[in-house]
Simulated scan of single mutants.
Amino acid sequence: MPAQREVWLLTVHGLDEFPEGGPGSALALGTFDGLHLGHQTVIGEAVARARGGLRSVVVTFEPHPLEVLRPSPEPVLLTTLDERLPLLARLGVDLTVVLRFDLAFSQTPAEVWLNEVLGRRFGARAVYAGSSYTFGHRREGTAARVAEWGRARGVEVHLVPAVLVRGEPVSSSRIRSALREGLVDEAAQLLGRDYGVSGQVVPGQGRGRTLGYPTANLHPASPRKILPARGVYATIAAVRGRRYGGATNIGFRPTFGGTQLSVETFLLEFDGDLAGEEMRVEFVGRIRAERAFPTPEALARQIGDDLTRVRELLAGAQPGIIR
């Protein structure tokens, strides 16, 4: 992958940190979990409008509203905040406002959000949001209400139509469903990039080494982030400043009677110990579902077949991948 230009993003946490004075704002509104193609369109229009003398501002939330309003033992995040902010910087955003979402915040009346937050605090001159945008207590605020407010206040309001892929709107929920089914290639089409999981490499049980395929065992940085469905995937592992092709298994090691979910990656053309290193695994394509094998030798033969398929899938990957 070509080296990316270093970019800077001013980030403030909470309304009180928002800088006073300065130019008005071209606001992009939404949770923006995943920063998928639809989000990129909304934000891109706000950034373009800001070139006319405004400041481009993205408003996002932490934690995700779903985690507060509809808590579930199943993870929902596509991007942690630490992943989201660099992606926003690369989109050319000037300022990101991270608002803490809790039950008290969820009860903010729509009029307060419009007049006190968008109008007074953020100095909105132009507002960009998806056509299905909702806000305020019990979602009493709608995209149409934002448009009506804008007309009354002399604020531009642009409701951006959904981006369609294969005739269906791109959405975070669609990406979550794809990942839970192991459809990482579909998720990549909707995100505009491969889906990735970051964390630290931790010591494992050494099962892979005994089979001739030593693995780096990833402890994901956030348990709140979705993992693709159990199975074997062609992946790209970024570690120690290099990017390696790899085969990643997500599952319970059923051949060995495992009971704990693990994320294990065999790196092509790598020999060494990565324990303690930070690593990011990006999912390119699914090879097969996880299953138990009658013997370790049968598993080793299957891994050899899996690696043949992995190399085929990675043949068209970005330049600079070690494979």
Results as ranks from 00 to 15, higher is better:
182 G>C: 12
203 P>I: 15
197 V>R: 12
209 R>N: 00
211 L>E: 01
211 L>A: 08
193 R>D: 06
211 L>N: 00
211 L>I: 08
210 T>L: 15
200 Q>D: 07
187 A>Y: 01
211 L>Q: 04
211 L>S: 04
207 R>K: 10
190 L>I: 06
187 A>E: 07
208 G>Q: 15
211 L>Y: 05
208 G>T: 14
204 G>F: 07
214 P>M: 13
201 V>T: 07
197 V>N: 04
197 V>A: 13
207 R>A: 08
216 A>S: 10
201 V>I: 09
210 T>C: 03
183 L>N: 00
188 A>G: 02
183 L>P: 00
195 Y>C: 05
209 R>W: 00
194 D>T: 09
186 E>T: 14
200 Q>F: 12
213 Y>W: 14
207 R>I: 08
215 T>R: 03
213 Y>P: 07
218 L>W: 07
202 V>S: 00
186 E>R: 15
193 R>S: 08
212 G>T: 13
183 L>V: 07
181 E>C: 08
199 G>P: 13
219 H>D: 15
206 G>D: 07
208 G>D: 06
207 R>Q: 00
218 L>Y: 13
192 G>R: 01
215 T>H: 04
218 L>I: 11
205 Q>I: 03
202 V>L: 10
184 V>Y: 07
210 T>W: 11
203 P>H: 11
197 V>P: 10
191 L>E: 04
198 S>Q: 02
186 E>F: 13
190 L>F: 00
212 G>W: 11
183 L>D: 04
194 D>K: 12
196 G>V: 05
197 V>G: 04
206 G>F: 06
